[in-house]
Design a protein around this nucleic acid. Structure first.
Lengths: 149, 149
DNA sequence: AGGAATTAGTTAGCCATGCTAACGAAGTAT
DNA sequence: ATACTTCGTTAGCATGGCTAACTAATTCCT
């Protein structure tokens, strides 16, 4: 299938192809998220709380790369569904402490399983070598994103 | 930076990390698109018309993985901005023929340059080996997306 | 101490983008 | 001719992005 051929090391060409692939990949995966009846922004924010633990609204907004008002609305929606809860911060009354409820954790893990299983299902046609290449790419991207500047 | 370490070949683990990396990558890149004053959906649809040539609304919607009403609105917005134009199909009056105008082509290429330059700028810190890994991943993803089933 | 500046979060209101349901117009088939 | 199908649009809903403007709390500076 993917026989040896010349792979460009031109950063622009790589950027272009990766960008396009990322867009189309996420469009496909997004449809699976319907099963959790949570929008993508809510799901992603919940994920940060589940894996990152308790944090304030500003931190969560920064982690999700959105503005505070946007996160405020997302948090309100998650709270209405009792997937997260807020407590007040002892010591700084402006702050709120957000954390996932057990219900939120369960839902997240379920949605994650569905979404990942869907993607993983399509990845199963790949060879171990190809999977390794994708894993390496994920790692490189994670590093790049971490030191984004 | 990225020293040798064990990379998982478990499809689920790879799927998970790639999914997360794709989400965060696109969030960052999206901010550059503001410079074109076009939303991501409009930009992407325009791109399909520029590179794919004239096509009907249904085809465009399928290419973009959205429903016809969604594409109908996106097309209307692009048309208002004179970035694309519609002609009627000789032989089947239900169909419309959509194609990018010269203005649309110019805008797309400009936006593309900005967005890609931004991403590429961050990729320039990477070694040739890492770039090759990303290029390979892009290729594998393109193949996977093409034969999605 | 007291007033000014800063910081955290919310509210209001805009726009873009996804969807389904329901429709009109045009083409196809019986 | 009538019924069915196909293509695109309209209407209406929800989500999720943003800025501007606000309140409340804290910190800073004199």
């Amino acid at each position: 299938m993917t026989q040896a051929r010349k792979i460009s090391v031109d950063p622009s060409a790589v950027a272009d192809r990766l960008h396009s692939a990322a867009i189309h990949l996420l469009r496909r995966v997004r449809r699976q998220d319907v099963a959790t009846s949570l929008g993508p922004a809510q799901l992603s924010a919940l994920s940060v709380l589940v894996f990152g633990g308790t944090m304030g609204l500003g931190e969560l907004a920064a982690a999700e790369q959105v503005r505070p008002p946007t996160m405020s609305r997302i948090v309100a929606a998650l709270e209405r569904q009792k997937l997260i809860e807020r407590t007040s911060d002892a010591g700084d009354a402006r702050r709120i402490r957000l954390r996932a409820t057990p219900k939120g954790q369960k839902l997240l893990h379920k949605g994650r399983r569905l979404r990942i299983a869907y993607l993983a299902g399509h990845f199963q046609k790949l060879s171990a070598q190809e999977l390794r290449a994708l894993g390496e790419a994920a790692e490189i991207l994670e590093n790049t994103l971490r030191n984004w500047s």
